[in-house]
């Protein structure tokens, strides 16, 4: 059991480095945001986790073309992922557009 965990960590050590450093980057980057920007920021972050769509595309690319059920599921996943990405960025942009200085 312990052996397995150590092996797992060792084999994925680079990924684990990325995770830990990203956690700190995320905290640092957000730490100083003024409250005015909380909503656009949440919306922007929401769009960024749409990166999960990359996973959905990978699943589809790895699925044999004969496996209709899997392709259909993958199709739905890609639609969902795109909604998250495009909708997220578009709505954030729309919000920020209004913050432009108006004279």
């Amino acid at each position: 059991m312990l052996n397995e965990i150590i092996n797992f960590l060792g084999e994925n050590i680079q990924m684990i480095y990325i995770i830990i450093l990203s956690v700190f980057v995320g905290v640092e980057v957000i730490g100083k945001v003024p409250a005015v920007l909380h909503t656009p920021l949440m919306s922007g972050a929401n769009a960024i986790h749409g990166v999960v769509i990359v996973g959905a595309i990978i699943v589809m690319l790895n699925t044999p073309a004969e496996n209709i059920l899997a392709l259909a599921l993958g199709f739905v996943a890609v639609v969902f992922g795109t909604l998250n990405v495009v909708g997220g960025f578009a709505v954030t942009d729309r919000m920020l557009e209004m913050f432009k200085k108006k004279k």
Binding site: I30, V51, G55
Partner: peptide, 21 residues
Amino acid sequence: LYQNQVMLTGGILVGSAGTIL
């Protein structure tokens, strides 16, 4: 799972930033 760096950084960034928010 996919050893995919962009999903990893994107996901973790939002995970930690979202928690702070």
